[in-house]
Amino acid sequence: MAQDVFSPATEAASAPGPGAGLASGATGVTGVTGAVARGTAPAPLIRLRALGKRFRQGDREVAALEDVSLDVAEGEFVALQGTSGSGKSTLLHVLGLLDRPTAGTYLLRGDDTARLDDDAKSAARNRLMGFVFQSFHLLPYATALENVLLASIYRPESARALRERARSLLRDMGLEERATFRPGRLSGGQQQRVALARALFNDPALILADEPTGQLDATTGRRIMEMLATINAAGRTVILATHDRDTAAFARRTIVLRDGRVESDVRR
């Protein structure tokens, strides 16, 4: 059961699942799902070249990212490490198609993301990615189950089947008894596990986690990191931003950012 939930859908197995409709966007996202079929060497999941992001603050410009070039292959577990303000969140937002770079290119499974329109980016976020945030981002008025179901909006299955899937994900997170609780009645660790269940709902290839343990105590944080490691072990790519060396140690590759530049990139 756990294996099924934590591992990403393969191309073949995804027929009715999340990947199926991504190509339906009229804007050429086909490569996002179809890179393997091209016959050439498979494009990496993520390829950044000379990526830059500048923010304008009044008449001053801040370079949050400078000349970032790196590849992330399918199945990697990457920690973006660095002090506060080093650009970790900005990079995750760019990777998550929530923000657009001001320089360089970002290829997602070989597709130039600069060419995706808003609906195509939404589709990619919905089917290809799962987000986990430091502050959980659960709807306060919705139950744990309803929060998980927020990711299900474009799924073709019956409402009942979707609820069943959400329940089973919560069960995998050890939250079976908490399905009808609102976030206010859940501990921080439980809330983050609800967010994890939601991130996994559409079988994403990529999990983006921004300081997922930032608001949790050490033990609870470790539990979340172990879950991310399990998710990664099952084949999903996980990219994690953290300022904390111990948290970063869960990953198998650590990219250290300083002032928006890649300072080091080490695999273990």
Binding site: A124, F131, A151, I153
Partner: peptide, 16 residues
């Protein structure tokens, strides 16, 4: 806005 931003982050199209 947080609810709307969250839904957009989860892949809701703006038309939805």
């Amino acid at each position: 806005r947080p609810e709307i931003g969250l839904k957009r982050a989860l892949g809701w199209r703006s038309s939805s």
